[in-house]
Amino acid sequence: MTVDTGRSQAPSTAAEDERDTAPPRKGGGWRALAVQPTLVVLGVVAFLVWRSTTTLSETEARQLGWTVLANSVREHLYLTFAAAVIVLAIAVPLGIALTRARLRRFTPAVIGVANVGQAAPAIGLFVLLATWLGFGFRTTVIALVLYAALPVLRNTMVGIQGVDNRLVEAGRGMGMSAFAVLMRVELPLAVPVMLAGVRTALVLLVGTATLATFISGGGLGVLINTGITLSLNSLLIGGAVLVALLALAVDWLGRVVEHVARPKGL
């Protein structure tokens, strides 16, 4: 499975690299980046127009009231970014540690375990954690962290392992310490792959956070779930569209960061 996802990601990043770095197409990279926010803005405008023109039943109006709505969105983002910060704090150092010579022999085992974990359905993970830790925000964040750590962990490792070994040797040969080589050579070169992992994780988090509603974690999933259980299509679609727009926006943000933070020589 490692090879698998690794391989499927490799061509796409390669294609993006080509698109973004080929000098004549540099403007094209930015232009491609402009499509997604346009879609998002159009979607938001359409949603706002729909929300202010349509007539809503009492229950719908309660859930789609501006304050409630804003609250749901804020909750959703809070879940997403709280989990993202924890994921970064754990997965990046862990990924770096696992590529150091002393721990490298554990790499296959960790990747293997992580892959099996990835095949686990998110909803199962949520419910299992809830039976153990109870419902609520804390459990939700823990479940999200467990679920999103994998892409960051793996891309950190893949990115660092992908750095040409001769460059590392050249760095050591110049008298740089192992730590200096890590900071000055390995990490900067691994940044594009690592950022791709972070973006994947963020998108995954926005999507998975919709499941928080099942264990009382809040967020936009509440709208969808209420819509489903009470057959209120406007709630259902409103929630779903907002989550999709949020995911697209977060994905775009990730792409912009990747585009800006890419080392210039690459």
């Binding site: 499509v35 919709t210 499941l211 999933g221 299509n233 259902l236 779903a240 569209v241 989550v243 999709a244």
Partner: peptide, 22 residues
Amino acid sequence: ANGISAIGLTIPSFALLGILLA
């Protein structure tokens, strides 16, 4: 095609299922 598959993958599955229910 690459754009569609990239953007499509960002849509949360629970959201899409919700939209399809209507």
